[in-house]
Design a protein around this nucleic acid. Structure first.
Lengths: 131, 131
DNA sequence: GCTTACTATCTGCTTTTTGTCAATAGATGA
DNA sequence: TCATCTATTGACAAAAAGCAGATAGTAAGC
């Protein structure tokens, strides 16, 4: 099941899982558009958008959050009332909402690229079968 | 037309156009699966997969090709018969074909993520309208 | 013959982004 | 007390991308 690609096995070092990261910021912004949250919780919520929390180091998530705060897309406040260690709770800002919209446009273009690749790959496979 | 996202303008430094490159290797492999080619020609062919050649530095393409050769996915030979400067003509190898297949599976997952993001963004927009 | 432009590839250097690993710290339960 | 879960941060290394320019053959126009 994991892979209908022949000859896949072997020594390929997964440069992939890196690179997939560029859906991460839009995903975080979307989650914050759905409601305020903090880093640790966002980590959990991310798997509803197809991220595998096992392969996602928390430092990456926190870094993106701080970067996006620096860029003015989100804003954070400390929550000391909750149990356990204090949480930095993020909320999306106006600039973040419009950036999310822009990123989704870019992602739509990427989706188009992927669909082209899939179609043309199908064509190749069909040609090979005819022979 | 370029952007139905309010408030997009301003000081956003485009970290984006960088980073989107992760469809590039699959695209190059696909083009080579369709037929042998050389770097300069591949640059042209890429716009049929939604790459803007204006924003794509040739050194990046050449570098990816050499990397993929080093990884054993493709193989090159010099073509001295053609006019102009000599070309390094690439052909896809067996390992490259199965890697392409694997990458397309990963990309399919990314496509799924993007669709989730789009759907949930739609939901947010609809909720906002109701208010 | 000289200049310009197009084809074609490669290298070096810098910045940006990711990955990895570990430190810190409160709360909870055995 | 010790392990474990929650929660965030920092430092350093590796990978990828951006940028600028070197090199070179060919062809067209003057």
């Amino acid at each position: 099941m994991p892979g209908r690609c022949r000859g896949e096995g072997g020594q390929f070092r997964p440069r992939w899982k890196r690179g997939m990261r560029f859906t991460l910021r839009p995903a975080l912004l979307l989650l914050l558009a759905e409601g305020d949250s903090h880093g640790y919780e966002l980590m959990d919520q991310l798997d509803s958008i197809g991220f595998d929390s096992n392969e996602l180091d928390s430092s990456i998530v926190y870094r993106h959050l701080r970067d996006m705060e620096e860029m003015g897309f989100i804003h954070s406040t400390w929550d000391d009332d909750s149990k356990g260690p204090r949480r930095r709770v993020y909320q999306i800002k106006e600039a973040g909402a419009s950036r999310l919209c822009g990123w989704l446009e870019s992602l739509d273009h990427v989706r188009g690229q992927i669909e082209i690749l899939q179609k043309r790959y199908q064509n190749i496979k069909e040609q090979e079968e005819k022979k």
